[in-house]
């Protein structure tokens, strides 16, 4: 990885630092925000912003180094893009359901979950 041309090294370095910044901001958000529903927004910063930047950096670095397109890392990005909605959606519904079960003040006036929480 040390024999990259200088432009590729700069691009890869900037993308890496941008990805790290996104991940760190997301983590700070998870620590700082005061309510679960607000905290639910912070992880998608590392799932979308940071993953995109770091995966792009890896693709560019390996492709320039090998002299041919290396697209392995795109699978990681694709996988995260497909699974992040499922986990975040499930956690949002869990929070709504548990708040309702514990008789906490529920944030929603209407009932979006329908009759049972597992109904599709």
């Amino acid at each position: 990885m040390t024999d990259l041309p200088i432009w590729a090294a700069i691009v890869v370095g900037l993308l890496l630092i941008a990805g790290g910044t996104f991940a760190l901001i997301g983590a700070i958000g998870l620590l700082r925000l005061d309510d679960f529903y607000r905290r639910l927004h912070a992880p998608s910063l590392s799932a979308s912003g940071a993953t995109t930047c770091i995966v792009l950096a890896s693709i560019i670095g390996f492709s320039v180094m090998n002299g041919r397109p290396v697209l392995r890392e795109i699978l990681v990005g694709f996988f995260i893009m497909c699974t992040a909605p499922v986990t975040l959606m499930l956690l949002g519904r869990v929070a709504l359901y548990r708040d309702r079960a514990a008789d906490r003040p529920v944030v929603a006036e209407s009932d979006p979950l329908g009759a049972s929480p597992d109904q599709e």
């Binding site: 990885m1 040390t2 024999d3 990259l4 041309p5 200088i6 590729a8 090294a9 700069i10 890869v12 370095g13 900037l14 890496l16 630092i17 990805g19 790290g20 910044t21 991940a23 760190l24 770091i54 670095g61």
Partner: peptide, 17 residues
């Protein structure tokens, strides 16, 4: 030169993560 840039930015990114 490119090795220095890459090593430093890798350290920064890993530290941030």
């Amino acid at each position: 030169m490119s090795a220095v840039i890459l090593t430093v930015s890798l350290y920064i990114a890993e530290g941030m993560l």
